[in-house]
Design a protein around this nucleic acid. Structure first.
Lengths: 265, 265
DNA sequence: ATCTCTATTTCGGGA
DNA sequence: TCCCGAAGTAGAGAT
């Protein structure tokens, strides 16, 4: 059960004390206040005064969120050291340093509105469906989805420095390299496939086909596929999801299914 | 100035009322509580019961954070509709729907520990230094950094569907296509350059050089560069940063510079 | 430790 | 609007 405390409108000394305690104990900290931010590392940035939410997670990750938008404006992934101190007459200073790559995130709070400090528990399992690797496995088990007579031989076959998703033989014993995309296939995906095919041709054979598998394709991708004499095939994610559900044991009933069954009302 | 309120240990009815008001007024909401989460859209996921921080931003973006890690476990970028209602005997249900792509995020709170609801202001300008486009501009202005006698002619020159960073002529009037990476150059960057060069050759000339500019290169990239007869050159980001600082008017003194000058103590 | 590739990538810019 | 490529991408998996 969560154990935490809330400080409202703390003076900076109390804020400092609370934040220091939280950091020492690897607690979660949510600091809401007015601050400046500077970052220097792989790049560098600065951000003027504004009201923000700063979250320091229990593993030391730091997030700075503005009132809008999905992305944090500044951040630090799980950091080795976070220090905090008072700068008399200016505010409360927080420095988060990451070692590899060496990066510095500095926050200067001029006002702190609220601090939440404590321990939160969350050990639930996170399950994600229909990742690319899952699609690859379904195609491997159901090779006719690619084309009749296709014989898949290897998943993640190393070719050069990379690995093609599926390698196999077609009904005429041509070598087939299959690159799979879970989202719309773009030029980048085509270039990836091209690289595998050229690499494989150089190494071994000449009768090599490259097939890009995706739910849809950008015009640029289709043009490039034609130019590079590569093939493509659309996959129907809905169909794959059904196959996936029928082939493996049903997961425990989810809230989502539950809600779907019951509806909202 | 921020205007907000904090509810501690609200019953679900009060929580519902506060969240509804916050949503109606496009306020920021931070909801800390115990919840289940299901997502369905481009992919699908489920997450069992655990203690989490849910942030609903003033533009409708939704973030669900676990106690650890940089990334939100579930989220919804700025959403069209968020609904919330009570499910008697079960908890408080929140549904965030995005239209393109169509995605559903459902959160069922079984307990709500704390809610923060209010308006926060942040109109400060965010400035980022040494983005790729900035590097491109510096090279364009200082072409000798690439090689003596290089004459840059065009930035972001369209070639096929993409655009090469810099196009120009070398001292022998060869066409030169320059692809710039701010981070370590990898195989993908080489393929990108290769694609531009081939496309340009087909279209026009034969004496076309392709040069990849990056602070460093992966072994795979170097191998591929050799194979495809493309060139590369290392750039020194520190040197570029100095050039950039001296060539353009100094930005206002930043907290970062200030701290550097003064030190921490 | 390094390299490669995925991601519910998100985001911004240009056609 | 779609498409393309950057990002302080982060994170996982393989070598």
């Amino acid at each position: 059960m969560a154990t935490y405390r809330i400080l409202e409108n703390p003076d900076l000394e109390s804020a400092l004390k609370t934040i220091k305690e939280g950091l020492m104990r690897n607690h979660l900290l949510i600091i809401i206040g007015e601050c400046y931010i500077d970052y220097e590392g792989r790049s560098a940035s600065k951000l003027g005064l504004g009201e923000r939410i700063v979250i320091i997670k229990q593993d030391g990750a730091v997030l700075v969120h503005r009132p809008k938008g999905y992305s944090p404006v500044n951040w630090q992934p799980s950091t080795t050291t976070i220090e905090v101190w008072l700068r008399s007459g200016e505010g409360l200073s927080l420095l988060a340093v990451r070692n590899r790559p060496r990066e510095y995130l500095r926050i200067l709070f001029t006002k702190i509105f609220t601090i939440i400090e404590g321990v939160f528990h969350d050990s639930a399992e996170f399950v994600m469906y229909l990742s690319e690797s899952e699609i690859r496995d379904i195609i491997f088990e159901n090779p006719d989805l690619l084309e009749p007579g296709f014989k898949p031989l290897e998943k993640e076959k190393r070719i050069g420095q990379g690995a093609v998703d599926i390698y196999g033989l077609d009904s005429n014993n041509n070598h087939v390299l299959v690159e799979i995309k879970r989202v719309m296939g773009d030029r980048e995906a085509v270039l990836q496939l091209y690289n595998y095919v050229e690499n494989y041709k150089n190494g071994v054979e000449n009768n090599v086909r490259g097939i890009l598998l995706a739910p849809s394709f950008t015009p640029g991708a289709l043009e490039l596929l034609a130019k590079l004499k590569l093939e493509f095939k659309e996959i129907d994610l809905r169909k794959l999801r059904l196959l996936s559900q029928s082939s493996k044991k049903k997961p425990n009933s989810t809230l989502f299914e539950y809600m779907n069954e019951k509806g909202r009302d």
